[in-house]
């Protein structure tokens, strides 16, 4: 391997290492914030009969799955946002308002992490 290639691999490894250690929690919170907001939007549309029940049910399951993996990452870094995620997941059928409130809390967590 030439010097240039080794330098490139080392630089990329460094970039990857830095981003994964420092930003995993922020990435998880951002993802969780968006997923919760998407779920809230779906529930809002469902309350006005603008989406099918199948669509609503599947989005709910997909959102719960995504939140599970994001919650796991946040628990590992002892981030309080994990509790918000656990609370949403524990509710079998949260309302649009409850989800919107959770999305707002996650937005605040996101801003807090971004400020660091």
């Amino acid at each position: 391997m030439s010097f240039a290639s080794r330098l490139l691999v080392a630089a990329l490894a460094l970039l990857a290492g830095c981003s994964s250690k420092q930003d995993a929690a922020l990435e998880a919170v951002k993802g969780a914030h968006s997923v919760t907001a998407e779920w809230a939007a779906t529930e809002r549309l469902a309350e006005r009969s603008r989406v099918t029940q199948t669509y609503r049910g599947e989005i709910r399951e997909m959102a719960k799955d995504q939140l599970q993996s994001q919650g796991r990452i946040l628990r590992q870094s002892n981030d309080p946002a994990a509790r918000t995620i656990d609370a949403i997941r524990a509710d079998a059928a949260p309302s649009a308002a409850a989800l919107a409130a959770a999305a707002k809390t996650l937005d605040e967590s996101e801003k807090r992490l971004e400020a660091h």
């Binding site: 907001a37 998407e38 779906t42 603008r50 099918t52 669509y55 937005d107």
Partner: peptide
């Protein structure tokens, strides 16, 4: 709304907002 679609299905809501189930 703070959404940066993480679920592909959310994109379809762009049509559901103005046109309801038919749009979806």
């Amino acid at each position: 709304a703070g959404i940066s679609p993480e679920l592909i299905g959310t994109v379809a809501q762009q049509a559901a907002v103005p046109f309801g189930k038919v749009g979806l």
